[in-house]
């Protein structure tokens, strides 16, 4: 079954290990600026949100690409770029709502490729703010979190009465 890169910002500690391992693996240098994943921080309120390509079901980057250079890798589920077709018009960069496609140092279009199905950021994220899991597991996780909130609320109501 297809796995997804699932982000749970509540667990993120803001350590930036994901950014660094990403740049070391893909660019062979340490430089978070060119990492495919980035942690956006609101330091003074303690909010850390990792942002990376969502590998959409219906990718806008694919829709807007005039050259048909964006395609899906069926085994990993990653949305990839065919560099033989890409002319570097950057329409995908402009239109992706997540900043999922980016311009690399040499001007090439790049994006998260899920590290060929074994994302390094996930492997190195100790607090499990990043997980690579099956869709059913995500659904279950989401419901569990919702249920927990619901039960906390119920308990508050019960103790209040």
């Amino acid at each position: 079954m297809q796995k997804f890169l699932f982000i749970n910002p509540e667990n993120c500690s803001g350590c930036r290990i994901c950014e660094t391992v990403c740049s070391l693996h893909h660019e062979k240098v340490c430089n978070p600026t060119y990492a495919r994943i980035q942690v956006i921080k609101w330091e003074s309120s303690g909010l850390y949100i990792p942002i990376v390509c969502q590998q959409c079901e219906d990718p806008i980057c694919e829709t807007v690409c005039p050259m048909g250079a964006v395609f899906k890798d069926e085994t990993t589920g990653a949305i990839l770029i065919d560099y033989d077709l890409c002319v570097g018009c950057k329409l995908c960069v402009t239109h992706c709502p997540f900043g999922g496609v980016m311009i690399s140092k040499n001007g090439k279009i790049t994006k998260c490729d899920l590290c060929d199905g074994d994302p390094l950021c996930v492997k190195n994220c100790e607090p499990k703010a990043l997980q690579f899991i099956e869709g059913t597991a995500i659904n279950f996780h989401k419901r569990r979190v919702a249920a927990q909130r619901f039960s906390e609320l119920m308990q508050k109501l019960l103790t209040a009465t």
């Binding site: 391992v21 660019e27 240098v29 340490c30 430089n31 600026t33 140092k105 492997k123 190195n124």
Partner: peptide, 25 residues
Amino acid sequence: GTMDVEFAYPDKLLDYCSEMNNQIT
């Protein structure tokens, strides 16, 4: 800063960093 920091053996370093993090955690 947005400049690259180049390390001598990036792949080995990556693996070893994971090992180090596991060792401590």
